[in-house]
Design a protein around this nucleic acid. Structure first.
Lengths: 326, 326
DNA sequence: GAGAAATGTGGAAACAGTTCCACATTTCTC
DNA sequence: GAGAAATGTGGAACTGTTTCCACATTTCTC
């Protein structure tokens, strides 16, 4: 493969001059530039990006650590993050951690070994001590001391769900979510704000008998049996807010299984936006997060880092997404 | 940041020795090794991967160019490709091309500029001349001269769908797909084999009045209006094979809209596997592709390339995925 | 038309590793 | 115990860029 030296030799100029032509920097006489450009075309020279990264100490690659891009919302977030970063000239490396801390560590280490310049982090694990805070890291949906943070307005979304269910005439409320992660690692995530917003709003207007259900997280797949067991004990509930659309779908399936009609008997609101690629049957009524706005916020922080500008946390508004289940 | 020279200096050895310790190569006396390892820990030294890539002329990064990772099947493929490559020590860079050739070019160029070592290509565009065939490239679902190729057994899948619909008693058949890409770029993709397998099998047993529908591709979203217009002209059809689950979903929605019952009046089989994250309502009966097996095949080719072993095309079996629509 | 400013150019250091090679020391082998 | 083989080590070249700096030439400015 041709290198910059070959170009310089063939064009009869110095290496520095070729570099200046390539990068359009410094002074180069028009004739010299043309001569060099001609040689570059002739020998099909393409600058070696590894070597450039070497001197520039920067490679414009960003890593995105997320649990599972197959999850619809995460997948869309990934899509927009890649698109947005690409616009700014950055490339995206992806890591589906499946919440395995070992895999997260490998990618977090890439900040230290210069494989990537920055990391977008989406995890429920306690990786605080593993984050190199001297490097650009942005966290979504999870706060880490000293790491800029982006999240949807989960609390506001919880309130919004409560108000909607009230408007629709519901009397007995339930929240169902996997936000408390079990005993092993009782991490309270930002997502719990959905629960808090929902409960606090209802409490604030005098409704204090809200039923709060927790179920163990299983790779974002909600077990039908489990939900079934939960629901049969609460037959008077007529308004359910689920922590995610996936949870809402499981709830709706089980309600219908036990003879309840949705939304006639029980109204269900999910969280994420109710999108489904293959939407046969009901569309879930949902509190929507905008993956596009979130991606934009995350990327603007990354870009600010690159430009050595100040960065700050961002909370992204949510919206009500109508559907067939509430 | 500490570099290898710092380690050598502090440990009182040569740079080459430190390198040998790090890479566990060549001869190093046990005491020397321990001394060096101690210093590495002390000053928290991590080898710079960019510099390593520089000398090794290899960075173990693979690019995956695909139309849209938000599409469920592609998303799963992406997931398994990343997981499989990670197992072998390779990292994945992702490019959602949205079929834009300009974006595909940027990533294809990365082979030349050494940003990535290899490319996995999933495109409908005519990029043949843009592929650097001296570098490791694997193509999925699309044949390019001189580029190893992986695909599901689309033809066999078409046959399988025909047989199933016959078994179920269907008499009048329709295929609906977006495989011919319109006049602008009449590329015949591998996916057309689904149509061929379906038609040829039916023809071979004397059924020659199969209705073949083409509709324009629109970013994998199938317009309801369009499908509606198509279906109303063929009210006697009772067995439909759709080129994808997304197309099948659109067809089913419209059939039910016009008063037909699925599967009682019309049976519909899709293609991809019938998976849906939020499966409310019917599950699509489908010819399944295995993203896991496909990812495995793709990655084994990549790994063979790295090991300088011979590579060859691979066709992956499909399977029948029962559902509620046929 | 002289001195200053702007323009133009190439050599060499720096980036941070790997590896070849020469040479030194230790351990075998008979 | 001598020669061969195995083990151990460091210097230096090499990977392909960017950029600082020194120096040369051209163009301004009064």
């Amino acid at each position: 493969m041709a290198n910059i030296k070959d170009v310089a030799l063939k064009a009869g100029v110095g290496i520095a001059t070729v570099s200046r032509v390539i990068n359009n920097s410094g002074y180069v006489k028009r004739e010299t530039r043309e001569k060099v450009e001609k040689v570059i075309k002739e020998i099909d020279y393409v600058p070696n990006e590894i070597a450039r990264s070497m001197t520039l100490q920067q490679n414009n690659i960003v890593a995105f650590i997320l649990p599972n891009s197959t999850h619809l919302f995460f997948g869309e977030l990934l899509y927009f993050v890649e698109a947005e970063l690409f616009e700014h000239g950055y490339k995206l490396m992806i890591c589906n951690s499946s919440e395995q801390i070992a895999k997260e560590i490998v990618y977090l280490e890439m900040l230290k070994n210069n494989r990537v310049d920055a990391v977008i982090l989406l995890t429920n694990n306690d990786v605080d001590s593993l984050i190199d805070k001297s490097k650009p890291v942005v966290s979504f949906d999870r706060r880490f001391e000293g790491v800029p943070f982006v999240a949807s307005d989960n609390y506001g979304g919880g309130e919004m769900a409560a108000k909607k269910l009230l408007e629709l005439g519901c009397k007995k409320f339930m929240f169902i979510g996997d936000d408390a992660q079990g005993d092993a690692s009782p991490v309270i995530t930002e997502v719990t704000n959905r629960r808090l917003g929902f409960n606090n709003y209802l409490n604030s207007i005098g409704i204090n008998d809200v039923i709060n259900i927790e179920y163990p997280l299983g790779d974002y797949i909600v077990s039908a049996e489990y939900v079934h067991g939960l629901l049969k004990n609460y037959s008077d509930v007529d308004g359910i807010f689920a922590i995610s659309d996936a949870a809402a779908a499981a709830v709706i399936r089980e309600l219908e299984h036990t003879g309840k009609r949705v939304p006639e008997d029980v109204k269900v609101i999910g969280f994420d936006g109710g999108r489904s690629f293959l939407n046969l049957g009901k569309k879930i009524t949902s509190i929507g997060q905008s993956p596009e706005l979130i991606a934009e916020a995350i990327c603007s922080i990354i870009v600010s880092y690159y430009n050595k500008e100040a960065v700050e946390d961002k909370i992204i508004p949510v919206f009500f997404e109508p559907g067939d289940t509430a």
